[in-house]
Design a protein around this nucleic acid. Structure first.
Lengths: 339, 339
DNA sequence: TTGTAGGCGTTATCAG
DNA sequence: CTGATAACGCCTACAA
């Protein structure tokens, strides 16, 4: 930096200002400095800056799993949005462990992050306290709730599942089942929404609920389907907690010669790209994961801009039911095939 | 740190040493210091350390795409392995642009990373020069080649595709096709390996090669299949450059009433979890992506350990052909069904 | 084995 | 609007 200063005929601190707060430096000097920076290929030293200013350019992101394609999409949005800012992402995963989340939070907070992105609203008491006391903006992503730590962007899993159950009911299905992998808090809320709507229509039965603590996968979907059919042969429609589970259920249904959608309705969650092109195309609930990532960073950076008016602290991105053939039962065939 | 030093009755530098090079401090002092650290909840200041030592705990990872599930698996391995080290991952993606890669390399190198992980062997001349001159270990991942910059872990895409084509030939298929998404350098090498083997058996035809520059997806797989069938109805087996393309092809085949494997052999690449449970199960080439990520970090950290003997600078993780029903043509049925 | 002095590259603070 | 000075928290070098 002193080289740049010398070449521009100013002092180091002026270079610093020209870079951080250009409006506090005369346009002429600014131009001169820019030229020198360019000529010398000067790159600011992040560590020195962090040391002197007690500020870093690191945004910590804490998610439960990096494998899960749902989070992969969120991360894509996060990286895309952060690209146009001077910030860097530091990613960590909790493996769905609240204690791990506490630890990670401590580590991050020890590094004076510019901001923090955390998943969901089910932090432990300790974690919650750490977040409340954090000297930086915090965004909770993936779902929304009444009591945000700070910023929040997501959607209501309860509502999404409720709406989906209603979709199945509207399509004439009456014995709804629920297939769930890794029942994390958000999955649990989806289940609750599903049960609420199904029960109200008398279409719910505990015997048609099959869940697992294993991570979501196509393989698991196939297993859960087999278990369900075995345990509750009367089922006529399945809400899968995740699209990969739905895909696995579809494959397994074929092996059991169960026809979709006539013998059995099938619907997934998240609307992965493959759902629309499956045979038959599978109904799913579209969620805006990429957008969620972008928005999270966007809100964070906005909050960092001081003059931020903390409106829209909670953003509900909603969801959309993409009705496809897998829940489009043809009534005529139905009665003839399954009397 | 000085607080810790005071509490332990030593000087700051001793605390520093107790933390970085414990073997240079008496066990008693070490214990005393550990106690003080614990009591005070002292967390070292990474930026200060970086500034003073000109070393950071950052390992830069450059991949072409964060969406691609292939890289998601690699990243999972990377994060898993780095968890047991003091290092942090800084991830960046090039979007398959060599110029982007150069820029990212410059940014990373400006930050004195502890190490660098880059994808593939097709760096631009400039990028290659930057890597050769890097003052830290460099690992190239995803494939292997004759001329590593430093460390390398991957497998031969050419060989993998050649072996796959041979598998199809061995199963009696004679009119092989190639479906390819986003023909990046590694896909290109797969294609070359495929062509080599297919040509040698007289089973290759340009008319049965359909590729796209779009990213790999199930949707694209379906489109490519439709195009192929239209353009070259004589095809009897398909090698898909990626599993999602294979899955899309399978769905589309069903729509066209083309039966797999009897009318048409089908095989993918990477052996994603879903291939084994698809209906029918789809043959694929297993690649060790998670292991690749782990190994990359492992080699990097090993190289950082000074005393490293630079043996095994190039690690070939190989591949495995997982033969499944989708290429298991039943000769008897074949002749009766498709005369 | 432990300690002392000095500096890493930047920014906060206060003057001009 | 610009500059001088003194940190920021830690580590390298050298000394004891």
């Amino acid at each position: 930096m002193s080289d740049v200063a010398a070449r521009a005929g100013v002092s180091a601190i002026t270079v610093s200002r020209a870079l951080r707060t250009p409006e506090k430096v005369t346009p002429e000097l600014r131009a001169e400095i820019a030229r020198a920076v360019d000529y010398l290929g000067y790159v600011p030293h992040a560590a020195a800056r962090a040391l002197a200013s007690k500020r870093t350019d690191v945004i910590g992101v804490i998610i439960p799993s990096i494998t899960n394609s749902v989070f992969a999409d969120v991360m894509r949005g996060i990286y895309a949005e952060v690209d146009s800012t001077p910030f860097k992402i530091q990613l960590a995963n909790t493996r769905y462990s609240p204690r791990m989340e506490e630890n990670l939070l401590r580590v991050f907070l020890g590094q004076n992050p510019a901001g923090l992105v955390v998943t969901g609203i089910d932090q432990s008491e300790t974690a919650r306290a750490l977040l409340e006391a954090a000297p930086c903006p915090v965004v909770q992503i993936m779902e929304i709730g009444d009591d945000p730590v700070d910023l929040m962007v997501g959607f209501s899993h309860h509502e999404a599942a409720r709406a989906t159950a209603e979709h199945l009911l509207k399509r004439g299905y009456r014995k709804l089942a629920f297939l769930g992998a890794r029942m994390d808090p958000r999955s649990q809320r989806r289940f609750n929404g599903f049960r609420e709507a199904a029960s109200a229509a008398g279409a719910f039965s505990e015997s048609r609920v099959v869940t697992s603590t294993s991570p979501s996968s196509v393989t698991l979907g196939a297993q859960l389907f087999a278990e369900l059919i075995d345990r509750a042969p009367d089922v006529d429609a399945i809400f899968c907690n995740n699209d990969d589970v739905a895909l696995g259920a579809m494959f397994e249904a074929r092996r059991h010669n169960v026809s979709i959608p006539d013998q059995m309705g099938l619907c997934g969650f998240n609307d992965l790209e493959m759902m629309a092109v499956a045979e038959p195309p599978i109904t799913s609930v579209r969620t805006f994961r990429y957008e969620m990532g972008r928005r999270a960073i966007n809100m964070l950076v906005g909050a960092l801009d001081e003059k931020a008016d903390r409106t829209n602290a909670v953003v509900d991105l909603g969801f959309e039911i993409r009705a496809r053939q897998s829940t489009n039962r043809s009534t005529i065939e139905r009665h003839s095939l399954h009397p």
